[in-house]
């Protein structure tokens, strides 16, 4: 069971959360090419390592926040608010 540190509520069990997938995705301009739009819609970072992702404290405060988590060990290195700057992270 992951112990996820909500920036608003503190550490809570994984079952209170939903993962919202990759974070920090920028929408391209609306006059972009089909390939760029497909990339925006469907291509995701899928690293074997540290991944920056959104989590939703759905059965808690209801807030969204960012987390940096290893996809190999599941260790969470940091959690931070949606609009806060990305903290320093391991490789």
């Amino acid at each position: 069971m992951l112990n996820i540190d909500c920036p608003y509520c503190g550490p809570r069990a994984e079952s209170e959360y939903r993962c919202g997938g990759e974070s920090l995705i920028q929408r391209p301009a609306l006059d972009c090419s089909d390939a760029e739009w497909a990339d925006y819609l469907y291509t995701r970072n899928n690293p074997k390592g540290v991944h920056i992702e959104r989590w939703h404290h759905v059965h808690g405060c209801g807030m969204w926040f960012n987390a940096a988590r290893s996809t190999v060990t599941h260790q969470i290195f940091a959690t931070w608010g949606m609009t806060d700057p990305v903290p320093e992270l391991p490789e």
Binding site: M1, N46, T71, H74
Partner: peptide, 13 residues
């Protein structure tokens, strides 16, 4: 488990 994972184990929930 609906979060990215390369760990070949599953979650307790």
């Amino acid at each position: 488990d609906l979060f990215l994972s390369y760990a070949q184990r599953g979650s307790l929930p």
